[in-house]
Design a protein around this nucleic acid. Structure first.
Lengths: 362, 362
DNA sequence: GTGAAAGCGCTAACAT
DNA sequence: ATGTTAGCGCTTTCAC
């Protein structure tokens, strides 16, 4: 055996100071011998900082925190009302168990010390609405922590929470065509991680890696097909972010197509609000000249003028259920079912009406 | 010296496996001897989970995360538009440096393993809008981590970011009285941690421990005093949360006081929105019969019908500046100035007008 | 260059 | 009951 001095020769005798721990009048926190030494030698004015959280986590193997990964830049989540309500649901679950909620930024890959998802101190991860091919998802599963995926991607072996996007969008499209609309146009959310605004070809639509966008596209397509409208006649404008501004830009481009669409199907309420503004900016009326539909049913949708016909999905509940699922996993339970698909229900309101002139197809 | 065996006799030889670390074809991640042993012995199917985040943090003494503490239940923060914008600002700063953002829930004090603020793994804390006597603040400073306080309390020795609440509220009150209003009423945010809804006596107003509430109250009082209105004639209704619902309840109570107020000064836009609804529910008009003012200047304020006269404060900027301050502190810099007070500027819009009948004081 | 080991501060397990 | 110690997995420092 190599001769090396026992550990004690360098390490101070023990972490617990000699005072009896349970004796009345002494604190029961008897940790940190070395720090106390420093306190006594260097300066007596320092107090006890409380137990070190990282050491505690290392030892216990738990941090009592769950992480949330968002598709986009973290700050965009706070600009997206659906994401905010989702996070509210997550935080509701967290506070009931006292877990911290860690919002993990997307780090530029060259960042030192690994990416934020790799070094975040969490017991589990909620992956919210990322593209199928997003490397951040791979990083998340590589950590071998419990993972709950929300909305997308629909990975088979991961716990999953989401909405019946396809059903919701086919239903609302069916409603629109049942009113008599034949010239439809779609305002879509991002199709791929590398965004490209503007009209999206059928090929690009096929190549979509955002699962919810693809699902809603399929729903619209099926709804249109039910009325005999070939999908190739439906222009699809891809927005680069979920904002009213982008909805406006999309609607402006789509209203320029010939023949002009009589119905605009937007994949989010925010995009729909922007579309309504663009329609009005042309001197047209919603819904008299152009019908507009949304998706999400934000609280603002019902108060909008005109009240927005949209598809309801329970953002807050999704967040709560996703977090509960994760917390169950962390507690060692094996929650069933592994997937929760919430229904997407159409809310028929004032932004849809029959098309202005009911002209039979040529 | 006590005879004890050297540490090596129990600890596996080294943490780095024998393979040459830099030889091409081998991963450069050569950590975790013990785990690798387990991998080889127990099951070969496990992979390398990535470096352990807690161990890394313990060793480095940094977690690359900053924590945010909120007055209230965490989930309420997501229901408060001002708080959401604040968090957006914080997250903007975080993502620029790749720091995680930890939202710390308020744990019921009896929670096992200490409170969440004590055990959260963060390098610094942003304390957002808590009462002067909130124990969570004491816990935060006891951790001896860098702390930035936002809005309240105005603790002298801590870095601080906030708004000129007193100036903003006195200015908007002066505007209202300059229109001729003499019967004012205030819809206040919480006065103390133990909430009590309803009309607040002068004694209770004096006892306020929420610094921003107290500051706005002082501002209103000074604005009223400038017009010779004694503060004792101004009823103050304390809302128990920042919601339209509470604004409605407050306005209903205040409109029942005799003589009926002609102007309602609300301490947040949300409360003001609710107040407007209550006024209309009585068959009265804003601003013809009753003027209403807010505070915050949410994006919705300008779009409201009528557009809300309110006080602007830069929620998002406050969040960004607070986080930048904290990140500076963490980087070892000593940011100057230690306090940032943003101006609160009045936005005169359509919800204020002269009182209905200009009757000289009896 | 390559390799070894000390130890961050805590807690669970074991020793008395 | 009270006291002791090993070691979580990493990184930094030191030794070769």
């Amino acid at each position: 055996m190599r001769s090396r001095r026992p550990r004690e020769s360098r390490r101070p005798a023990r972490c617990r100071p000699s005072g009896s721990p349970t004796r009345p009048g002494r604190t029961t926190c008897w940790f940190r011998h070395r720090l106390r030494e420093r306190i006594l030698t260097e300066s007596a004015r320092q107090g006890f900082h409380g137990p070190d959280a990282a050491a505690r986590s290392l030892r216990r193997g738990r941090s009592a925190a769950i992480g949330v990964l968002y598709t986009d830049r973290l700050s965009y989540a706070f600009a997206d009302p659906g994401a905010v309500r989702f996070l509210q649901g997550v935080s509701t679950a967290c506070e009931s168990t006292g877990n911290e909620l860690v919002l993990i930024p997307r780090t530029s890959d060259a960042s030192a010390g690994g990416t934020a998802v790799g070094r975040s101190i969490v017991d589990g991860l909620v992956v919210y609405s990322v593209a199928d091919d997003d490397p951040v998802l791979a990083e998340a599963v590589e950590r071998r922590l419990p993972v709950v995926v929300v909305d997308q991607p629909h990975a088979a072996d991961l716990h999953w929470v989401g909405t019946d996007d396809e059903g919701g969008s086919s239903a609302i499209c069916e409603h629109v065509v049942s009113l008599g609309h034949r010239r439809l146009a779609v305002i879509a959310t991002e199709l791929t991680r590398r965004r490209r605004g503007g009209l999206a070809s059928l090929a690009r639509q096929k190549a979509a890696t955002f699962a919810t966008t693809a699902a809603r596209l399929r729903g619209y397509r099926d709804g249109a097909a039910a009325a005999g409208i070939p999908w190739s006649t439906v222009p699809v404008y891809e927005a680069v972010e979920n904002s009213e501004e982008q909805g406006r830009a999309a609607a402006e481009a789509l209203l320029d197509t010939d023949p002009r669409p009589t119905a605009l199907l937007a994949m989010t309420d925010q995009l729909a609000f922007g579309a309504c503004q663009a329609v009005r900016n042309r001197g047209l009326d919603v819904p008299r000249d152009v019908s507009v539909t949304g998706f999400d049913d934000l609280p603002a949708a019902a108060r909008y003028e005109p009240p927005l016909t949209t598809v309801h999905q329970p953002h807050g509940t999704k967040g709560r259920v996703a977090a509960d699922l994760l917390l169950d996993l962390l507690a060692g339970r094996t929650p069933e079912p592994r997937t929760h698909t919430f229904p997407a229900t159409t809310r028929l309101r004032g932004s849809t009406a029959p098309p202005p002139t009911r002209r039979r197809r040529s």
